[in-house]
Amino acid sequence: MSEPILQIEGLVKRFGGVLATDNVSFDVAPLETHAVIGPNGAGKTTLISQLSGALRSDAGVIRFKGEPISNLPPHQRSLRGLARSFQITSVFMEMTVLQNVALAVQAHRGHSYRFWRPAAGDAELEAPALECLREVSLHERRDVRAASLSHGEKRQLEIAMALATEPDLLLLDEPMAGMGREESERMINTLKDLKGEKTMLLVEHDMDAVFALADRITVLVYGRVIASGAPDEIRNDEAVRRAYLGDEGA
């Protein structure tokens, strides 16, 4: 097996007395789609935030492409090829769809201490941005303000912005959150297209999506990894079944 792109070792996050992330360890291999599932409050978003750098870890090591990144601020993790999407839609509402993605492209085209030339109409930014919009089939909405997009479209935009940073690893925090069936299917198709091209760490509630997409699944309950393996193993795992049948205390 090739060297893992992401190695998580003994990661811990405490909020007061609550252990949100309890000694979590697992690897993500290059180009795999790795899903993290778990009941509400299992600490999935906390984990994503620790990986992206939005939250500091209390203990443990995160290695990305072989190098420890635990102490880097979020923007430097992004520049090294780690991209995240947000569970609660987080786009630039007052900008157009294209501007949103162009801004993400801009972040990775050297510094932005360019004070004079207009950013709008800059092909160096807009061409790659359009490419990303095409990947999530949002290119026809390029000049619409992000605030006027439907919920599903905003989620697609999230993905496009993450893609625009040319990541080696995509951290997707519940990309299907709050979506209707049709929108969900569209998102699953988008992610299916990306599968095999991009390494993805997917946190998701929607089990259909998880089993349709994931190569490997890690199950988190109360911040602890209770199982990790191929979808079939997880489906038949006794501990997982118990957790999902609501018998969590057992």
Partner: peptide
Amino acid sequence: GNEERMRAIGFNT
């Protein structure tokens, strides 16, 4: 508009 997002896409805001 959204500082957290800016950092996540790689800006040293």
